[in-house]
Amino acid sequence: MTTLKRDARIAGLIYLALTLVAPFRLIYIPGALFVHGDAAATAHNIATHELMFRLGIFGDLVTGVVSLFLTFTLYHFFKDVDKKLAALMFVLGFMDTPLYFFNTLNDVAALLLVNGADFLGAFDQAQREGLMALFLRMHGQAISCAEMFWGLWLIPLALLIIKSRFVPRLLGYWLILNGLAYLALCVSGVVFPAYEDTVSQIAFPLQLGEVAFVLWMVIMGAKPRADGFAMPAQG
């Protein structure tokens, strides 16, 4: 196996880990525990399945760490193609990590309210449930804001893919559309929330660009361009 193909598969495996861990808090926990418009039922579900909710918090922390490793690995992989473009990708991708870490505080606050610690005695049950719902809503809004960077970092990554031709350029063009889809979701979630579900349905097939890229990197790896250009071997 060539160094290029090996490095591509390492990056692909890290990206695959991210795509497997991130949806747990992002998709599974809300679907399993949250009851839309019913704070009391949501609080009951969180209290009943506290370990699952705590795993969701831990999952966000792991996602932030894996995201940091991913951006560094992809920077290392593409830096000899275009160092400035790779640096831009790294900076935009790096923003994912602090956003995930800060957003766990909203879930921690929600869990404290559900458990009703002694220092929360000034709040009755209904007030604690209302505050819990507020922190969960803030978590969701923070995700909408994070989609700005989820989209922006894919643009320089896509351009690096197209420029390097280590993988099919079609994947690069698809990732551009994927990035634009995230930006549209950010705008709808922050500015036009009434249209968020509609935008989400339209954006879904475009978001499969990341999945296609990950699978290609894991299964096929990468190969030098047809004109013979290849990154220098790393020491």
Rank of each mutant, 00 (worst) to 15 (best):
M138Y: 02
H139A: 00
G140H: 02
Q141A: 04
Q141Y: 05
A142R: 03
A142M: 07
A142T: 07
A142P: 02
I143K: 03
I143F: 00
S144C: 06
C145L: 03
C145F: 05
C145I: 08
C145S: 02
C145A: 05
A146V: 11
A146P: 13
A146Q: 13
E147Y: 14
E147C: 13
M148Q: 10
M148F: 11
M148V: 13
F149W: 04
W150H: 09
W150G: 09
L152V: 11
L154D: 11
A158V: 08
L160E: 04
I161W: 01
I162R: 09
K163F: 07
K163A: 08
K163I: 07
S164V: 02
R165C: 13
R165H: 07
R165G: 10
F166I: 02
V167M: 06
V167W: 01
P168D: 01
P168S: 03
P168T: 01
R169E: 06
L171E: 03
L171Q: 04
L171M: 10
G172A: 10
Y173I: 01
Y173Q: 03
Y173H: 11
W174I: 00
L175M: 14
I176R: 12
L177K: 13
L177V: 15
N178Y: 12
L180H: 14
L180W: 14
L180I: 15
Y182V: 14
L183E: 08
L183N: 11
A184F: 10
C186H: 11
V187H: 08
V187M: 09
V187Q: 11
S188Y: 10
S188A: 15
G189L: 06
V190G: 07
V190C: 06
V191H: 01
F192V: 04
F192P: 11
P193I: 01
A194I: 12
A194H: 10
A194Q: 13
Y195K: 09
E196D: 14
D197S: 15
V199Q: 08
S200A: 15
S200T: 11
S200F: 12
Q201D: 13
A203C: 11
F204G: 05
F204L: 10
L206N: 13
Q207W: 08
Q207I: 01
Q207N: 04
L208S: 05
L208K: 05
G209F: 00
V211S: 01
V211Y: 02
V211D: 00
F213K: 02
F213G: 00
V214E: 08
L215Q: 14
W216V: 04
M217P: 09
V218C: 15
G221C: 11
A222T: 10
